[in-house]
Nucleic acid binder design. Sequence first.
DNA 1: CAGATATTTCACATTTGACTTATATAAGCG
DNA 2: CGCTTATATAAGTCAAATGTGAAATATCTG
Lengths: 117, 117
Amino acid sequence: MHAFDILGDPVRRRILELLAGGELSSGEVTAVIQREHGISQPAVSQHLKVLRDNGFATVRAQGTRRFYVVNPAPLREVDQWLDRFRGFWEQRLDALSTEIARGKRERRARDSHPTES
Amino acid sequence: MHAFDILGDPVRRRILELLAGGELSSGEVTAVIQREHGISQPAVSQHLKVLRDNGFATVRAQGTRRFYVVNPAPLREVDQWLDRFRGFWEQRLDALSTEIARGKRERRARDSHPTES
DNA sequence: CAGATATTTCACATTTGACTTATATAAGCG
DNA sequence: CGCTTATATAAGTCAAATGTGAAATATCTG
């Protein structure tokens, strides 16, 4: 689980939030980030590269544009890491949804290979 | 949400995993981390301080010992941040559990104040 | 083809953060 | 009390990460 290292940067988190809303071009992402964080265009490009290289985003080239989409896999890993702490705040659910939540967690755990933690 | 910065460090993540199993003294944590990561006692102490200072853990002094417990609040924030991506991997659930998962998310969202993202 | 535009890559400076060793604090214990 | 144990703090070092401006790459367009 080194997905957290990637998510440690606020700019990258923001980019992912933007991509959560759907595919965006590098330029569109850059416009928002520059306005919000005041960093240069290459800086944004480098963050996009980190997201690419670590499987958080996938690119589709179209002409001179690069369209980015979020790839949820590493985020799901983070979600799974959190499983061990869910008991701390999930205690106050009614019996049925607790049962289903539990089943969901087990399914999630079973369907994937254990990794570093 | 700068909780991710805290979780970006593998030693801190490991400490939290240990605390997820229940209260541990600084020394007990240190023993495991030193064995697994080969870092000094002060290094572990410094990580514990970061966890303390950022609300991931709470300490209880007893004699010369300091007992640490995990504080789930910041982890729940992380969980909430992930909400916006859950749709990407929760699509393949049967109708009932999907409904309940959705309800759970909404409850979670409603019961807490919006923060930075 | 010659710009213009969109994006990445490069080389470098600066900052941040995670270590280390040394030292402080504070109980327990003979 | 002085010694040992448990833990934290301080000061300094070093590497990794993040930013910058300049240049490269590739596509579109008149």
